[in-house]
Amino acid sequence: MSANLAKKKSISTLELFESYRISCDTIPLFLHGDALAILRQLPDHSIDVAMTSPPYWGKRQYAEEGIGLEKDYQDYVRDLCEIFSELKRVLKNTGSFWLNIGDSYKAKQLLGIPWRVAFELTDNQSWILRNEVVWNKVKGGPDNAKDKLGNVHEQIFHFVKRTKNYFYDSDAIRSKPSQSKVVNGAIVSATGVSGVRYKRQIELSTELIPKEKKNAMDALNAILDDIRQGKLSDFRMIIRGQQRTTHSDSKRVSGRAKELFDKGYYFLRYHPIG
């Protein structure tokens, strides 16, 4: 807490919070207290992002009472979700909620607690689950059980309040791709795709009619030009009768399958910056 705010010990949590927001202070503000009680004092739509890894059920005792010490795991799920309901109120519509939570056993049964919490939030609080990120704990804790594998991962869930317009900077986490190059006068993608094989497959195809062959060749040349100009780093071409459809052959469930049926080809484009 900043020195200026520290002098205001007698003001309410809400006043302290609002004063901090107005000050634009870069020193972190710590609000110490019961999470649910603190959240209830904060205004609607006032938080940009929330991140938490609450105590896991039946694993630690941080205090005499509190989250994780409930007698039944269902009470644990209920207590967490009561807090997350209040968190949803204070989170901005452009905000995100990141939840790291691990699982627990009862009578040798893995309870599936992370997903029980996630389903409660999506089914009964209308949170939108955008991602499940798997935390691969390379050096997991020792497990002496001889009748099961060790649990060496945890879930990190990404929740939002709306399907669109929440803040997300995907460019910030990209890995820089390899660069395309020119070999014997021909452009070659980051992974060595020159288009020669695709052109040969188009020319020899018995699945494509002449008009489809021309359209496919024109589209391939346009993609190679994008590689040359740095608009793409890499690509793959799927040609009817040559490569299998990505994910599904059903036009009813796959837009790519429909594109392959209608046009005779489609492209998988790699982002130019990784």
Rank of each mutant, 00 (worst) to 15 (best):
N4M: 07
A6G: 12
K9W: 04
E15F: 06
F17P: 08
S19K: 14
R21I: 14
S23N: 13
S23Y: 08
L31N: 01
H45Q: 15
V49A: 15
K59G: 01
Q61A: 04
A63D: 11
E64V: 02
I67S: 08
Q74A: 15
D75K: 14
Y76K: 07
Y76E: 11
R78S: 13
E82T: 07
I83R: 03
I83L: 09
I83F: 08
E86S: 15
N93L: 13
N93A: 14
T94Q: 14
K106E: 14
A118V: 10
A118F: 02
F119T: 05
E120Q: 15
W127Q: 10
N131H: 09
V133A: 07
V133R: 00
W135C: 13
G140E: 10
P142H: 03
P142A: 14
D143M: 12
D147I: 03
K148C: 10
V152L: 07
E154G: 09
Q155Y: 14
I156W: 01
F159T: 02
N165G: 08
R174S: 05
S175W: 08
S175A: 13
K176W: 11
S178V: 01
V182G: 09
I187G: 00
G192E: 02
G195A: 03
V196C: 03
R197D: 09
Y198P: 00
E207F: 08
K214R: 12
N215T: 01
A216D: 04
D218T: 12
I223N: 03
L224T: 01
D225W: 01
Q229L: 10
S233R: 08
D234P: 04
D234I: 05
R244Q: 13
T245Y: 04
T246W: 05
S248K: 08
S250D: 12
K251T: 10
R252S: 09
E259S: 13
E259W: 13
G264A: 07
Y270L: 00
I273M: 09
I273H: 06
